[in-house]
Design a protein around this nucleic acid. Structure first.
Length: 271
DNA sequence: AAAGACACCTGGGAGC
DNA sequence: TGCTCCCAGGTGTCTT
């Protein structure tokens, strides 16, 4: 389940192999992803050179000469590099071959991911409405308090809402709130400055640590070289409902919040 | 305007 | 063993 650290790990894994390479072949076996792959997708990519790779939220951005390829991994998407087109699995939807004989393969069983082409990524509605990057200096206490002001939604829902802060999914939201000692259902407007500062501290710590360790490995995530990440071994609450809290020993609770399962410690995390 | 509900999709696990 | 049912998750869009 790719959250920001998984996307960042993928980006760093791909960059040395495909940056500055030109596209010599494109195969789209299945066009129905979150949005359909356009009919002229192959034609628009062919002979283009990757000028740079970057990330915005959970979107990977491959800057080509004419336009930008935006890739979102959805919930089960994966990008792998290979040197020859190996056996094609049922969920291997797109291959992009480069002049250096590398093949970038997009695999996505649930097909919630997306590949989009846009001439102007900064103006693209999907990117334009995104909130701040959690690891940038834009995420300040003032910014966060401004987001939470007058908002009754649960703090966890706000953390996971990409219009406020990008890149935090269900797993990291649960972990961050546990470390910050904040109850996931606390109304956003109740956040006080000292909690906001602590929240930012843990957002940045958790995400940076996860990136350093190559993302979280649950069912689906494998980085671009096919190696799993190791962050899941350090999860405090996610997937541990009913087990003992590492801090106080009490049983971790599970609730549904915004249609997402949420695990927390009712003793360590307060309103 | 804000916030909640729903839809998209498949694999895997539980229960029968 | 095999079938059915339910759940997981990211996020755009619809509904309240």
């Amino acid at each position: 389940m790719p959250e920001l650290p998984e996307v960042e790990t993928t980006l760093r894994g791909l960059r040395p192999y495909i940056d500055r390479q030109s596209i010599v072949n494109v195969v789209a076996r299945r066009r129905q992803l979150r949005w359909p792959i356009p009919d002229d997708f192959e034609k628009r990519l062919l002979n283009q050179t990757i000028e740079s790779l970057s990330r915005r939220g959970k979107y990977l951005l491959l800057q080509l000469q004419q336009e930008t390829l935006m890739i979102h991994l959805g919930m089960s998407g994966r990008l792998c590099l290979m040197t020859e087109a190996s056996l094609i699995g049922p969920h291997d939807h797109i291959d992009i071959a480069f002049s250096n004989h590398q093949i970038l393969r997009y695999t996505d069983p649930r097909r919630f991911g997306a590949m989009l082409l846009t001439a102007c990524p900064n103006e693209h509605p999907l990117l334009k409405s995104l909130g701040v990057e959690p690891l940038s200096t834009d995420l300040t206490t003032d910014y966060l308090l401004n987001c939470t002001k007058n908002r009754r939604m649960a703090i966890k829902s706000l953390l996971m809402n990409s219009h406020f802060i990008v890149g935090i999914g269900n797993i990291y939201a649960a972990e961050i709130l546990f470390l910050a000692g904040i109850h996931p259902m606390m109304p956003a407007h109740a956040l006080i400055p000292i909690q906001a500062a602590r929240l930012i501290e843990y957002i940045q710590q958790v995400l940076a640590k996860a990136i350093a360790q190559g993302g979280t490995t649950l069912k689906d995530f494998v980085n671009s070289e096919g190696k799993p990440g190791y962050f899941s071994q350090q999860l405090n609450v996610y997937g541990r409902a009913g087990q003992a809290c590492y801090q106080c020993g009490q049983s971790l609770q599970q609730i549904t919040l915004g249609q997402r399962s949420t695990v927390f410690c009712h003793h360590c995390q307060i309103f």
